[in-house]
Every structure is written in C-alpha cells, then in structure tokens.
Amino acid sequence: MSWMAWTLATGIFFACIFTVLVVMAVWEQISPTVERRGFLPMATTRGDRLFIGLLCTAFIYLFWLATTDASPWLALPGSLIWMAAIGRWG
C-alpha cells in the first residue's frame, strides 16, 4: 500500500467518506428515501442531496483556497452548515 502514498489526513478523509456511504446504505435499508422538492431546482433523493452537498463543499474549499491565505479549517463550519441545509431543506 506504500505506493498509494497514504497520509493520516487523507486516511481520515476517506474513512469519513466510506463511513458516510455505509451509513447512507444502512439508512436506505431501514427507511427508503422518497424524492422530494426543496429549495434546489429539482426533486432530489437523500443520496442526491449528499452528493450535491459534498460537491458544494469541495467548491467552497476551492474558492477559499483561491481567495484567502487563512486556515482552511475556517471554511469547515460554513461547509457543514451548507451541507446540513441542503440535506434538510434542499
């Protein structure tokens, strides 16, 4: 596995992603998702909203890194709030 050049940070990142996917799969089994329409311009499932939330977070981080030298940790609360908003009202 050393050829994959793992670091602790990327290990934690992928562990979080896989955990979220497993939780979503289990949640889907327990309570199947229903398409609904919120403030996003189309009907979405839970998985859609997670995907859109993650994609938005990635672009929030890109914007942050492109425009400021401040620590990227400062972008985390905003990203989490935005993800939660999409999950709840998206």
């Binding site: 050049a5 670091t7 990142f13």
Partner: peptide, 25 residues
Amino acid sequence: MTVVNYSVQDILGPNTRVFVGFEWF
C-alpha cells in the same frame, strides 16, 4: 485515491515525500 494522496504531498522521490496540506491547491 492515490491522486488525492499525492495532491497533499511534495513527492521528492519514490519513497521520499513531505506532507504539505492544501499548499498545491
């Protein structure tokens, strides 16, 4: 996943690399 791992490191050689965080981004 390997690309993600590479993106946060300075690859100096096959087994020599330094973690740089988001610096390359």
